[in-house]
Amino acid sequence: MNFILGTVGMIILLYFGTGYLPIAEDNRMKVAIYGGIALTILGAIGQYMGKAKPANSTSKKAATSKTTSNVPLGLYTYGEEEPALAGITYGGLKTPLAIKYSDSKGDITQREIVIHQVSMGYSRTGAIIPIAMEAFCKLRRRERTFNVPRILECTDPVTHQPITDLGAFLAPALAEIEPYRRSNLIYDVAPTKMVVRYQFRRPKFSEKPITITSIGVYQSPNGPHQTLSYIEGTLDGKTEAQRLKTARLGAASNPETGELIEDLQAYLISRATKGPYNYGNSDPNSVGVTISATE
């Protein structure tokens, strides 16, 4: 419609404008019609090219910057985006690896890394799998922690062959190292309501009410010292339980009084109804049993 109105307007302007030129009356309408259509088409082409130019420059800029994507995570952790820690760590490695990695902001980059330490966790079936790696990143030129669920592709930089099973690839190197083990213990607690300040999406924190039903703690192999690793419960408005890592937990407070809970671990353990027991073992008598890497 805009094109038609513009064409008609241009024809009228040309018709009256050519009245001052030495053009025969019979030809004035032809000049106005053909000229009006031609000028309108040229104007439309110019307008299109004016819009297309910034778009091209934007896409070119995007192609040279980091790519942002909502690709599914957990390719190398059997679909688990936040696997449970097994309390088993291997250090002293010097294993090179090429990866395609999605960071916490969703930016995807190609990295060449040299792995120095691997932390193990559990898959949904209870199998022991790598879930985090401390490595020297050649892109950043410093030590970085890489979460295995965020790895999108792996390649052996020596053979240039793609890696489909990261655990199998690392197994020969891990077999030569004595792992550092900690017991990963679980307590069932009486339903406990509180408000948590949590980093659901980095880097921002938000406050949400939650009803906690269980917690996980690490127990040092050298003594009774325990460290809270996660809390698990149902957020208000949700039906499924969610596990919140203490590394992303900013604070917790009593929803009735608003007072901060200073020692969250002691507070929740005092409300324990069962435990502690090892991950995957519901026997409360299994306190302190070290989970082997072969289970």
Rank of each mutant, 00 (worst) to 15 (best):
P191Y: 03
S253W: 12
N222R: 14
T211P: 05
E262P: 07
P221G: 10
I177S: 01
Y187A: 04
Q219R: 14
I212N: 00
N222K: 15
V196P: 02
Q219Y: 11
A173D: 06
I212R: 01
R202K: 15
K193V: 08
R271T: 05
Y198S: 01
N222M: 14
A252K: 05
R201I: 15
I215V: 10
A266I: 09
Q219W: 11
E178R: 08
S220W: 14
Y187K: 02
Y187R: 03
T227W: 14
I186A: 07
R202T: 15
Y218S: 15
P255F: 09
G223N: 03
I261L: 12
D236L: 09
Q226W: 13
A251N: 13
E259S: 11
N222P: 11
L249R: 08
Q226V: 13
P203F: 02
R197S: 05
G223D: 03
L260S: 15
Y267H: 13
S253V: 11
L260C: 14
A171D: 08
R181I: 11
Q219F: 11
P255C: 08
A171E: 09
L174F: 02
L174R: 03
R197C: 05
V195M: 02
L244T: 00
K208E: 12
S206D: 10
Q219I: 14
E176A: 06
S253A: 13
I261K: 06
S270C: 11
P172L: 01
T234D: 07
I215F: 07
I212P: 01
E256S: 07
S220P: 05
P209F: 08
K204D: 15
I177L: 02
L166Y: 01
A168P: 06
P172V: 00
A190L: 13
I177C: 01
V196M: 03
Y180A: 12
F200S: 05
V217I: 12
E240M: 12
F169C: 01
R243H: 06
G233F: 02
Q265P: 03
A173M: 05
Y218W: 15
I231Q: 00
G237M: 01
G223S: 03
R243E: 04
R271F: 06
T234C: 10
V217Q: 05
V189N: 03
Q199W: 02
T192S: 06
L249M: 11
A241Q: 08
Q242I: 09
L166P: 00
Q199K: 05
R202P: 10
S253E: 13
M194I: 07
L174W: 03
I212K: 00
P221H: 12
A173I: 01
L228G: 05
L170K: 00
Q226S: 11
Q242R: 11
L244V: 02
A168C: 07
I210V: 12
F169S: 00
I210C: 06
T239Y: 04
A171Y: 07
T257M: 05
I215T: 06
K238Y: 11
V189D: 02
D263P: 02
S214N: 15
M194R: 04
T211W: 01
I212T: 04
Y198V: 00
A175D: 00
G167F: 02
S220I: 13
L166V: 04
A252V: 09
A247T: 10
A190K: 11
T211N: 01
A171F: 08
R271A: 06
R197L: 08
